[in-house]
Structures are given as structure tokens and as C-alpha cells.
């Protein structure tokens, strides 16, 4: 019956509009909702990790053997670089340089992802109580992950750098050429605004430039894998991120000083 249908549709839409209005005036409504989902999401993710361990057993075994070989190689490189570090420290002392401060970090587990395919958001299990604030950078041991965009009491949302709306001020480590990295919702990133004839090569390392103030300077982003020309001679580079942004489980949040 159309009359009955109308009487149900209009109240539903009114309720939905009220929710929308409430959210506009109460900015923390979503953060409070996510905080209440904190424990179920953590439990689900723990179950999820166990299932993943069973399903990916062989993959993990092969990965483990490869990583053991890499560890022994890295250990050797560490010994060599320790020598360089000590020499550097002595020289800095001699020249009376101010030491770069190491930023404070806190580890967090990823407990959920954005349900949509048109954005790249992760939910972590740390929030205001652990000192996290909006726009804190999020990294892993291998490189940059993104920044915090919403903070609740116990959880936070992180905008990953492969999201379309993400922008990271970056530079090529070798040539110090600056550019802006944006996401493509896939594994690769794109570095825009490279001038014609920019000194960029395949396998160049890309790091954060620290210009925007959002990300500390010097965090590894990835490596250049392709270079192309855009309109009017401007170039762009395709970057392979150093971190696997599609399989994040644990991250480190850079806390404000």
C-alpha cells in the first residue's frame, strides 16, 4: 500500500537526517562509536591472524627462510655501519653540531580496515589515552605508512599513503629533487610535480622531505620503478612503497614531542 510505504519511508529518512545533523554538531560521534567497537574488532583480528597463519603456512615458511638469510646479511652491514656511526659521532663532537633528536614512538596493532574500495584507511588500537593526536605520522620498520586522521579514546584512524586523498612531500635521496607523492589505491604511488629534466633515475630512493610539517624528514617511502612524462614536459615517477601497504598488521606511531 503506497500510503503505508510513505509513512515508513519519511520517518526513516528523518531519522537518517537527524543522525547526519547530530554528527555535524558533535564531531566526536564517530570516534565514540569506534571506541565501543574496539574490543570486538581486536578479537576478530586476533582470530583472523590465526586463520591467516594456517592458510598461509607454506608462504610463511618460505618467507621465514628468506628473512633468516637477510638477517645475517643485515647483521654484517650493521657491524660495518656502526663503525661509520661512531666516526660520525666523533666528528660531530669535534664540530660542535647539535644532535638530531630521535622522535618518540608507540607501537600499535591494526584492528580493521575501511569497508570501501575507494579509500585506504586502517584502524589501530591506540588513541588519545596513549598520547596519539591528529596528524601524527605512522610508520613501520620498513617505511612510511600514513598519518592519523581521526582519534578516539582507544582507537585511531590512519589515512594510508596509497589513498587518493593522501599527499606526502617527498624528495629523491640522491639528487634532493622534491616532489609530491599521492596514492592510486593500489600497490604503487605516484610522485608528481617533477620539473622537465629532473634528476630522477630508476631505483632512486624516495624519502619524506619534512616540508609539509606532517611527516618527519628522512622517513623512507620507497623506490622509483618507472619514470614518465606528463603534459607540457613535466615528469612523474611511479614509486614502489618500501612497506607492503595492503598487509599491515603492526605499525609505529610517531608521537608529538
Amino acid at each position: 500500500m503506497p500510503g503505508r510505504k510513505k509513512s515508513l519511508i519519511i520517518p526513516s529518512l528523518i531519522v537518517a537526517a537527524l543522525i547526519l545533523l547530530a554528527a555535524a554538531f558533535i564531531p566526536y560521534i564517530r570516534a565514540s562509536f569506534i571506541d565501543s567497537l574496539h574490543l570486538p574488532l581486536e578479537l576478530l583480528f586476533a582470530i583472523n591472524r590465526e586463520i591467516q597463519g594456517i592458510v598461509l603456512y607454506h608462504y610463511n615458511l618460505v618467507q621465514n627462510q628468506r628473512l633468516e638469510r637477510e638477517i645475517s646479511l643485515v647483521k654484517r652491514q650493521l657491524y660495518e655501519s656502526t663503525e661509520v656511526y661512531l666516526e660520525n659521532a666523533r666528528l660531530r663532537e669535534l664540530l660542535d653540531f647539535k644532535e638530531k633528536s630521535i622522535y618518540p614512538l608507540t607501537a600499535a596493532n591494526v584492528i580493521g580496515y575501511d569497508p570501501s574500495n575507494l579509500s585506504s584507511i586502517i584502524i589501530i588500537n591506540k588513541g588519545k589515552e596513549q598520547g596519539i593526536k591528529r596528524d601524527c605520522a605512522v610508520i613501520t620498520n620498513s617505511g612510511l605508512v600514513g598519518r592519523v586522521v581521526e582519534v578516539g579514546r582507544l582507537t585511531s584512524k590512519v589515512l594510508v599513503i596509497n589513498d587518493i586523498n593522501s599527499g606526502v612531500a617527498a624528495l629523491i635521496q640522491r639528487s634532493r629533487q622534491k616532489g609530491l607523492i599521492s596514492g592510486t589505491l593500489s600497490r604503487g604511488l605516484v610522485m608528481h610535480y617533477l620539473p622537465p629534466g629532473a634528476d630522477v633515475r630508476i631505483s632512486d630512493t624516495v624519502i619524506t622531505s619534512g616540508l609539509s610539517g606532517l611527516y618527519p624528514k628522512g622517513i623512507l617511502i620507497g623506490k622509483v620503478i618507472k619514470i614518465r612524462e606528463e603534459n607540457y614536459g613535466e615528469m612523474f615517477a611511479v614509486i614502489e612503497p618500501s612497506t607492503d601497504l595492503t598487509r599491515l598488521e603492526e605499525v609505529l606511531v610517531v608521537l608529538p614531542k
Binding site: I19, L20, A23, G112, I121
Partner: peptide
């Protein structure tokens, strides 16, 4: 549908209420 929309809004990043409607 309201519940699904609310869950999508809570877990996503769009302005709250878009998915609900």
C-alpha cells in the same frame, strides 16, 4: 539498511551520515 549505513560511516572516512542515507 540504517544499521549497515551507520557501520559503514563509523568505519569509513567520509562525512558521517552519507552511507546511512
Amino acid at each position: 539498511s540504517l544499521l549497515i549505513g551507520i557501520f559503514r560511516d563509523v568505519l569509513g572516512f567520509l562525512p558521517f551520515g552519507f552511507n546511512t542515507i
